[in-house]
């Protein structure tokens, strides 16, 4: 995949300079994930991050009895996985494909190593990730307010 194609896939990548996207396009893998397959599981080592090309991924919490609770769903262009970016590099939640899903997979170790060596890539990529993380934090806070009327529970 060319870096310009990659740029069009996601707001997280759109902000990066050509040379940085060129690096990411040299390591990207396109992966098909079957519906209901686990992309990564909680407490596993965070070895990659993903951008959704098509489909739907849910961040979920397994519960002892019954169907897992969905924390958030992610769709086309969304970044899946934040924990690869800071220590201890372990996933906090389970990510599962809720439909047949195609993702771009980036090897976390390679990206971290390159970011350490090339601070310009590091700054741009981490800024972009911070923006995505901030949006998720803000919307999670609004949801904590439990604004909508509804039956208790």
């Amino acid at each position: 995949m060319s870096f310009s194609e990659l740029r069009n896939q996601s707001a997280v990548l759109a902000a990066l300079e050509d040379e940085h996207l060129e690096f990411l396009s040299s390591i990207v893998e396109e992966v098909e994930i079957a519906q209901d397959s686990v992309v990564f599981d909680e407490d596993d080592s965070a070895e990659a991050f993903y951008i959704i090309a098509s489909g739907r991924v849910g961040l979920e919490v397994p519960v002892p009895t019954g169907t897992p609770m969905l924390l958030e769903t992610l769709g086309n262009g969304d970044l899946v996985g934040l924990s690869w970016a800071s220590e201890p590099y372990r996933w906090k939640w389970r990510a599962k494909a809720l439909s047949p899903t195609r993702v771009y997979r980036f090897d976390a170790e390679k990206v971290r190593a390159r970011c350490a060596a090339d601070t310009s890539l590091g700054a741009q990529l981490y800024l972009s990730i911070a923006k995505a993380a901030m949006m998720r934090l803000q919307t999670a806070r609004v949801r904590l307010l439990d604004l909508y009327p509804g039956a208790p529970g």
Binding site: T67, E72, G75
Partner: peptide, 23 residues
């Protein structure tokens, strides 16, 4: 369509309505 809480058998999205602007 998006909701604040659901289990993983829900067909729609989970998240705030503003998440849907990009969709």
């Amino acid at each position: 369509v998006t909701v604040d809480r659901a289990t993983s058998d829900w067909w729609g999205h989970v998240g705030l309505v503003t998440n849907e602007f990009s969709r």
